[in-house]
Design a binder for these strands. Structure first.
Lengths: 253, 253
DNA sequence: CCGCCCCATTGATGCATATCAATCCTTCCG
DNA sequence: CGGAAGGATTGATATGCATCAATGGGGCGG
């Protein structure tokens, strides 16, 4: 066989290898995906995807952080997601992206042409499954955020945000306690449906409550984990539907 | 062949045949999916899925309407989605559902055991693709809702809601103009992150603006389509990134 | 057909967060 | 090292929506 041995591919040492797109292929087939990839580098502020632009590419993040956002003519912005190394972005059912993606720190990413990627998926149907699982996780996360936006107050929102970033760090194999924020206050505000001032005040309040300590504006130490969690995680109804008519949910036939 | 001919299956006359799960199989294989289905009927208020219950089933709606919700111990509720005939629900990446699903009108649905369904999908990988597409659409819708919750005011939220229901009716081949609301005000409120009173006030205001007319509490006639749309649809930045450094988005290599 | 009950509507008030405005702090560059 | 600029914080005020409270109306059962 004259194909490149897996170990010689950059993919074999890439953080994203274990996640999403790239994890959907076996080592021996990896060169096929690598063949479609265009490596790209973005400065902070650089645009990976243009809102309203043709939806013809997909990105996989190798390093750095980005945000997915929606911007309106009257200057309102909603950040829909933060992207970490290993995340991918760009699949949509529309012809044009209804969101943009911007780097918030320097970013390295692999870009794939959607049409060519779809052909590869056609060839390796396993990729479909992996993508389905990832999208299912994304939906779960999205539901979580919907609840946060719809039903939490400012303090709970900011606590949830810190809790989330801490969680993302842990998932990347990093320590979860000093929380490092790659984004500025305006990004946090636009993610949580708040204003910069409110985010700042909530952080000050958390500090005053001795739940956190601010080493710098971008470095948060969680001091009182229980306190922060109880603000971030609103527990579900503990004994739901106890009096519900069992006929309504015939769990077994 | 001794298998049931497609035309003899109820599926051949089911509204859900053309959507999601059921559309992912060819006529000739349909009996396989049908074999896994348990037909179920729910009264208004009945529970299809129990929040925090084991995530072992998936539902496909044949008729009626349902909502997907998250309920907390302190009585807050966020409705995450409304379900219409043809929709499916129940895929999650968690072991337990982090949401419940309740019928808001009488519902007929097909229930599938997840493990058995996954085995069938294994056998027909095409289903994976179809599910991926559907989940991608769900993500797009979810992004839309995130923007609405994070950045629209009460009037815009309610206008968006009416616009959305109107759209759903059209997609089901029904007229989109007299908007029929199967849910009560509390459901609308919990969907849009508002209270019942605010929803009611917003509807009254829309009425006063002559954008809509209320034939009854559950029957809304759209009178001024442009007015309603301009409230519901916040236009995207028209000429985005015009001054952006082109190096940031090297669209062509 | 009446009356009750649930839900929607409308009104009055309070509060959380947005908005407007003024420092403060950090970083970067001369 | 000094000064400017962008971002964060803090303060003062305004406002939109929640909350509390009362009234209205439609549907269902007696």
């Amino acid at each position: 066989m004259s194909i490149a041995p897996y170990a010689s591919l950059p993919c074999s040492r890439c953080v994203a290898r274990e996640s999403t797109l790239c994890a959907s292929l076996a080592d021996d087939d990896m060169h096929r995906l690598y063949g479609l990839a265009t490596g790209q580098r973005f400065e902070a502020g650089g645009l990976l995807l243009r809102q309203e632009g043709p939806a013809d590419h997909v990105f996989s993040l190798r390093s750095g952080h980005a945000n997915v956002f929606r911007l309106t003519a009257d200057g309102k912005r909603q950040i829909l997601a933060f992207l970490f190394p290993g995340d991918f972005v760009g699949f949509t059912s529309e012809d044009n992206y209804h969101y943009g993606v911007a780097a918030i720190t320097p970013v390295e990413a692999c870009r794939f042409e959607r049409t060519r990627l779809e052909l590869l998926i056609e060839e390796f149907p396993r990729m479909d499954r992996k993508l389905r699982f990832t999208l299912t996780r994304a939906m779960d996360a999205s539901f979580e955020l919907l609840f946060t936006l719809g039903r939490k107050d400012a303090l709970q929102k900011v606590a949830s945000f810190l809790w989330y970033i801490s969680y993302r760090q842990r998932k990347l194999g990093q320590p979860d306690n000093p929380v490092h924020l790659p984004m500025r206050r305006a990004d946090i505000a636009d993610f949580m449906g708040l204003t910069v001032e409110t985010v700042s005040r909530a952080l000050s309040l958390l500090k005053q409550m001795k739940a956190i300590r601010l080493r710098s504006a971008y470095e948060v130490e969680i001091v009182d984990t229980d306190r922060l969690r109880s603000l971030a995680i609103i527990v579900a109804e503990p004994a739901p539907w106890l009096h519900e008519d069992p006929d309504y949910y015939p769990h077994k036939d």
